[in-house]
């Protein structure tokens, strides 16, 4: 019998290459993407491979292992994400009416914005809490796995061209001021008032590999766990759960759900369509 040396279909070789690459990244650098949903991960890896002028994901693995700068670029691909201020205005509107009254009963409020990307969500939350006179006694811990996006977030500057969209979001989110009060134009950027970042701490934290680091009254983790497979979602939900006070509020993305997860029965909906939950046990 002669061996059949053809491999069974290009995508099967590719999924093997992806598994090996993720293992290499984990062992060499400690970033663990092995439990991420493969579809969008594959697209990002292939894009990086193409931009680097490489022919295969095996070649990308070699590049990543021998050149930390290549790993840095890949990490940025895997963490740069679309975010916007007051994304899903209906969510912020519900937060104003359903969560703000609860927060008034606390002398001090700790908010964790997990997976904050370039900071749009944290600044939106700072604006909202300020308008309800809660910001002075609030601290927002905004974390992401990537230092580079955090540096951008710290700068508090977003493209001026986005301000029209953000203003419209802000108004639909129940904002009552002139949105332009919060920033000054600076070249192509809108620089946000530094008062807003006074109570935001930006820090590196990896939801997959790092531990709980504080106890919070509110946790926002929106559109982050959609990148994880079911079992990683369960793991991360466990971490969030551990980090949330009893009766604390958990917010997830509008197309995510707690249903069918290991922690479903620990939460009660404050507003189920806006994915606002309260920890009850």
């Amino acid at each position: 019998m002669t061996a059949d040396w053809t491999v069974r279909g290009t995508a099967d070789v590719e999924s093997l290459e992806i598994a090996l690459l993720l293992e290499a990244v984990y062992q060499a650098y400690g970033y663990d993407f092995r439990g991420y949903s493969r579809g969008s991960l594959r697209r990002r890896l292939v894009r990086r491979m193409e931009v680097e002028g490489l022919k295969s994901l095996s070649a990308l693995q070699e590049c990543v292992l021998h050149d930390p700068a290549c790993m840095k670029r890949l990490l940025l691909d895997l963490s740069v994400n679309v975010s916007s201020m007051f994304r899903d205005p209906s969510f912020y509107l519900a937060f104003r009416t359903k969560v703000v009254p609860l927060l008034r009963t606390y002398p001090f409020v700790r908010v964790w914005n997990a997976g904050c990307s370039t900071g749009e969500e944290a600044y939106s939350m700072a604006i909202l809490l300020r308008e309800h006179d809660l910001y002075d006694r609030t601290r927002i811990y905004a974390t992401d796995m990537n230092q580079t996006v955090l540096d951008q977030a710290r700068a508090g500057a977003f493209p001026l061209g986005k301000m029209q969209e953000y203003t419209s979001n802000y108004i639909r989110a129940g904002g009552t001021r002139a949105f332009s009060e919060y920033y000054v134009a600076n070249g192509r950027n809108a620089r946000f008032d530094s008062v807003l970042s006074d109570n935001i701490v930006f820090a590196e934290h990896n939801l997959v590999t790092d531990r709980s680091f504080n106890e919070f009254h509110v946790i926002l983790c929106r559109n982050v766990m959609i990148y994880f497979d079911r079992s990683l979602q369960d793991h991360v939900l466990g971490l969030l759960h551990e980090s949330l006070t009893t009766l604390g509020v958990l917010a997830i993305g509008l197309k995510e759900s707690l249903e069918f997860t290991s922690h479903a029965d620990c939460y009660e909906a404050l507003d189920s369509s806006q994915r606002l939950y309260r920890r009850v046990r």
Partner: peptide, 19 residues
């Protein structure tokens, strides 16, 4: 859903992304 990518995963589930 509008404003999300829809992806098919192995193992018979969907995933969404905001890429």
């Amino acid at each position: 859903p509008s404003d999300y990518h829809l992806l098919v995963e192995r193992g018979g589930t969907f995933a969404l992304s905001t890429d």
